[in-house]
Design a protein around this nucleic acid. Structure first.
Lengths: 139, 139
DNA sequence: TATTATCCAATTAATTTAATAGGATTCATA
DNA sequence: TATGAATCCTATTAAATTAATTGGATAATA
């Protein structure tokens, strides 16, 4: 139950881009966020393919958000690096387990999985920049 | 963001034990749940060390729950195989990341992590046996 | 006491994740 | 239009984690 470094780095990258007035260059993101340049390369690619960032050409070149920060959730960034979120494979691939017919857990896994997705979807990049998230429960 | 096979197998194991009137033998659990016998061996050990199951000696020997099924949550089983639940390392080890001082994400990670723990803690083995869990949201 | 099951430690295999390497392409500008 | 910096693209290697196996010691029962 860990997020990969790509997801963590991906979030830091998109936050850095979102926070900057102008475009950010790969090398500057890599330096600020202490991410190996070539590894960041792959992260940038993931964010770009999903349409979360884009590259501005011209005098002040660099990466900027491709959509409003209030429209990008943590889960969107997660999906830039993972095909889906399935805490157990049987959720995404019904045929993978021969016991699923009589599985007591399946319904519960589906519900818990849904809650985790909801948890990751509740905050946008804008929320994070604002530090405007509310702590509802007691931690 | 996947649960390990040990956690999945561990849950199936404890459900099998909880559902049985008498004690269950390792070999029977292994057969029913299609878990390699020696791998199950390690799973049984994990559950036992955490005091979730115990071994009944005598004529009708086998494993039984060591506490009431209504007192064992999914998260308890999870903790039999993992040291903790930290979706990002910085939650459990403050010093692991040199950027944590100014990290915009840390507070959010802590909250999301808490929600996942809560999600895994909401159901007991008894709930699962009863199939008595409620689906609150829309899935 | 022979058999069966559990307990315990170490090793190997498989899979996934992280990172590096090398080079092709693009583009602003000198 | 040559050049150098930055991006883009593919492949490979390294590291770490997880899954499973091996081999055998111990203990309980038939």
């Amino acid at each position: 139950m860990k997020l990969t470094k790509k997801v963590r780095y991906g979030l830091r990258t998109i936050l850095e881009i979102a926070a900057s007035k102008e475009g950010m260059l790969q090398k500057d993101i890599a330096k600020n966020q202490q991410i190996p340049l070539k590894f960041l390369d792959a992260i940038i690619t993931g964010l770009k393919i999903k349409g979360l960032i884009r590259n501005v050409k011209g005098k002040k070149s660099g990466y900027v958000l491709a959509k409003n920060a209030s429209l990008i959730t943590i889960y969107d960034v997660y999906l830039a690096f993972e095909p889906d979120l399935c805490i157990v494979d049987c959720i995404c691939d019904c045929n993978m387990c021969s016991l699923s017919e009589n599985c007591l857990m399946l319904g519960i896994w589906i519900k818990i999985n849904y809650e985790i997705v909801a948890s990751l979807s509740q905050y946008t990049i804008q929320d994070i920049l604002n530090r405007g998230f509310k702590i509802d429960g007691q931690i």
